[in-house]
Every structure is written in C-alpha cells, then in structure tokens.
C-alpha cells in the first residue's frame, strides 16, 4: 500500500492572536486568549487534510505566559493524543525561543507531555519530560529521517530502545506511515 505523506500546515500563532482576540496585541497572555487561539488552530486543522503535520509557529510571539502555554501547547497536544482525537494530527513547534521555554517546559511537565520543537538555530529537540529511552529512540529516528519498517529490529532491538519507541509512538513524536510502517521524523515532514 502506498504511503500517504501527511499534509504540512503552518500556523502563525502571532497572527492568529491578533485575529482570534480581535485586538492589537501580539502577546500570548491570559487563558481566554490562549483558548481562543487553540480553538482557531483546531478550526484550521479541521480544514486540512489527514493526516496532518502542523507547524505551530511562535516566531512572532514575544510573550507567552503559563496560562496561554497550557492552552496552546499542553491542551492542544492532549486533545490530539487520545484515541478520541478529532483528527489525525501531529505537531511541531517552530520558533521556540529562550523566552518561551520556561512556560512551555512547565506546562508540559505538569501534564506529562512531550513536544517536538524547532529551535532558532533550526535544530529539532524534544521539550518536556521524555524518558531517556524515549529521547534515545527519538534521536535515532531524527538522525535517520526515515527508518523502514524492516529496519526497526536493527535500530530498536534493544528492549530499552524498543520501549522508548513505543513511548514516542504513543506520544505521537514520530510519524508511522500507515501503509509501510516506516518511521518518519516529524522534522522531515515539515520541511517537505
């Protein structure tokens, strides 16, 4: 069966703040603002194809407070993690700057969530309380870009790595192609 590559979609959160809360402010502060932005993101996703890789772009966001981070990062991820998720969507946070890290790390830690983030230097990393095995497994996929299904034993034969792979799959930190079972790094999908 041929794999269907996820549709990448870029969502500019800075622009969305201004549109969603109908204000002149570009800061991602207060819970109602965060909720409005999260709902706007979900609306955009509803119009995209499936599966989708969403690039949540924080580049233009100067201030992200904890309440907004809880809505736009933690609650967004949570909503698309469970079996009852509204769509088959994956997330990568782009433009994550030093000033965003504290709130993002705090809300991820509190909800035991992990996110894929692209730093200012272009590199990708995991944010949140991933286990060492999950980090190790994720880095293997990230380095390889794509791991064919018949290469899984080679890469994840070790029981520890195998449990790490299970973790990153259930956390939706890598894409598992539905036809071939290949593992694809989310970074490769957002880069097209």
């Amino acid at each position: 069966m041929a794999d269907r590559a996820p549709d990448p979609i870029r969502i500019d959160v800075g622009a969305l703040v201004q549109r969603s809360v109908a204000s002149l402010y570009a800061h991602l502060v207060t819970r109602p603002t965060g909720r409005a932005v999260r709902l706007a993101i979900e609306t955009q996703l509803a119009e995209a194809g499936e599966p989708t890789v969403s690039l949540i772009d924080l580049t233009e966001v100067t201030i992200l407070d904890f309440s907004c981070a809880d809505e736009v990062v933690a609650k967004l991820l949570q909503r698309f993690l469970g079996a009852d998720r509204p769509r088959n969507a994956f997330f990568v946070f782009r433009g994550v700057q030093v000033r965003h890290r504290d709130p993002m790390e705090a809300v991820l830690e509190r909800q035991s969530l992990v996110a894929v983030a692209q730093r200012e230097d272009g590199g990708f990393e995991l944010l949140g309380p991933a286990t060492p095995a999950e980090r190790d497994a994720w880095h293997r996929v990230e380095r390889a870009g794509r791991i064919p299904s018949d290469g899984r034993d080679h890469h994840f034969g070790d029981p520890n790595l195998s449990s790490g792979l299970a973790g990153i799959l259930s956390r939706r930190l890598v894409f598992e192609a539905p036809g071939s079972g290949d593992l694809v790094a989310l970074s490769r999908l957002v880069h097209g």
Binding site: H27, V29, T30, T62, I63, L64, D65, F66, S67, R99, D102, P103
Partner: peptide
C-alpha cells in the same frame, strides 16, 4: 523583561 511581563500577566 519578558519574565517580568509573564509574572504580571499571571
């Protein structure tokens, strides 16, 4: 400056 703004917001 950003951290202070976040505190004020909260």
């Amino acid at each position: 400056v950003v951290q202070f703004s976040v505190i004020l917001s909260e």
